[in-house]
Amino acid sequence: MMLAVYSLTQRELVRFFRQRNRVIGAFAQPLIFWVLFGMGLRGSFDKASSGGASYMEYFVPGVLAMILLFTAIFSTISIIEDRREGFLQSVLVAPVPRAGLVLGKLLGGTVLAVLQGVLFMVLAFLTQRGLAFDPLRAAWLTGAMALIAFSLVGLGFLIAWKSESTQGFHAVMSVFLFPMWLLSGAFFPVTAETPAWLAWIVALNPMTYGVALLRHALYPAGERALPGIPELPVSLGVTAAFALLMFVCAQAVSVRRVQGDLQ
């Protein structure tokens, strides 16, 4: 089974790199976001809520989360394409347990997302004074990104498995995933002035803990005080539990047959 998982993972990567516009698009969008929002909101940002970091620096985990979210979720579009192009059926009749298929897809998407996250991380190291290169910081961040990406690819898998068209998938994307990112502490911090109902949504959003985990990973030696976000053990625990849950759900849903296979 490991061979099958390896092969499915590798195929995701090969496919990705052979579609050049995907490579460029996946990286350019968050970068544009970062520069435009970072510059635009710089003046109106209260540094007390970020432990003294500039908005550009504050926004780094948010952009990382966005890169992970977009790459991870979009990588699962390949499931819809595979089904439509017929490739999936030959995997379905191969002597590979469904867990192997799911794991292959999830790892493929995870590696892609982390690769892009790492690229951005390097950029942040080079441009942000508060975030110089530090092996511990890089290791923490990469690990956190892998865990978050895995859970997000799992989420994408759940949505994609039953989707019959990529258009439908995009619709889910905009009504569901974008708010999920927006309300995760990625874009703005939760402070005393945040309305209670909004604070609740943020607290219930699993992505909040992912972003918090990234924020903690950014300052492994506690360089900055991080008020108003979940503690490290909580962030790590919730993110890991979410990742596990997504994998179990993805595996459960993959056993079900889909109308698209019977056409």
């Binding site: 496919r15 017929g86 059926q89 009749v93």
Partner: peptide
């Protein structure tokens, strides 16, 4: 599954 080889009517190759 190990004993059978399947050739589907719809193509099943990865074009990339």
């Amino acid at each position: 599954r190990r004993a059978i080889g399947v050739v589907f009517q719809a193509p099943s190759l990865d074009k990339k």
